[in-house]
């Protein structure tokens, strides 16, 4: 799973670089617009350490944000699964709020909380929270009648058992959603950093943009891509391990 993901990323990344090079040489673009491969290599050697640390910094924020948002999504999803007034209210509110672009709220957070760690964390968590919440709400609201019937009619159904049954029956879907939300968390953190933060790979991209240095941006993209690929593969492996332990398959 891990080598496959990394290999897929390499193919996409180098196809993209290849496309840029074709454009550069066919349109005779200067090194200032699209740097030559040798310049890119030079930039990579020069910036590798700093950009790697920045990417790890971003990834750390994204992982913490994702964990928080998954926990929050499960808590709210479990409460919102009920067909009570509160449950319906949570569902409607979640559907409405998720339609609002969180990135548009980012400036408000930076104004109120400054450009530090908490703001980046909040943006990361908010961006991956709603898709996870909607999936959890959908899964938790749907009864698994052929299993739950017995527990209901014999008076054994408790909310913990209900959640356990629905989680177990939708384990593949849940692990896919959680693995997918990693990309969202990373994207959210980078966008937050790009807007106003003072650290992370998004901040480094902003500096590179001001310097019009495409080489640095491409190096940053490479590091972001490889980090997400590895993280997603690790999440998928974790999902498979949980599934194997729980289902015995």
């Amino acid at each position: 799973m891990l080598p496959k993901r990394v290999f897929q990323f390499f193919i996409i990344y180098f196809l993209f670089i290849g496309g840029l090079m074709i454009m550069k040489y066919s349109l005779h673009l200067s090194d200032y617009v699209i740097p030559a491969p040798s310049d890119m290599l030079h930039t990579m050697v020069a910036e590798y350490r700093q950009y790697s640390l920045a990417t790890i910094n971003t990834m750390t924020v994204a992982i913490i944000g994702q964990v928080l948002s998954v926990i929050m999504a499960f808590v709210i999803g479990i409460i919102g699964r009920q067909s009570t007034w509160l449950g319906s209210f949570i569902k409607v509110a979640a559907y409405n709020i998720q339609a609002y672009p969180i990135v548009a709220l980012a400036p408000i957070l930076f104004i109120l909380l400054g450009d530090g760690f908490i703001t980046r964390l909040l943006i990361a968590a908010m961006i991956c929270y709603f898709p996870v919440l909607l999936s959890v709400l959908g899964i938790m609201s749907k009864p698994i009648d052929d299993i739950e019937h017995f527990y209901r009619v014999t008076g054994r159904m408790r909310w913990q058992l209900e959640v356990k049954i629905r989680t177990f029956e939708n384990l593949t879907q849940l692990t896919t959603v959680i693995a997918g939300s990693a990309t969202l968390a990373m994207a959210g953190t980078i966008v937050g950093e790009f807007i106003a933060a003072n650290a992370g790979i998004g901040y480094s991209i902003r500096i590179a943009l001001y310097q019009s240095d495409l080489g640095k941006i491409l190096i940053a993209l490479f590091l972001i891509g490889i980090t997400i690929a590895v993280y997603q593969a690790l999440l998928e492996l974790l999902g498979v391990a949980i599934k194997r332990t729980w289902t015995g398959k």
Binding site: D146, I147, H149, F150, K164, I165, F168, W246, T247, G248
Partner: peptide, 9 residues
């Protein structure tokens, strides 16, 4: 009924 299942864990 005959379509019922036991949890698989």
């Amino acid at each position: 009924h005959n379509k019922e299942r036991l949890p698989g864990w």
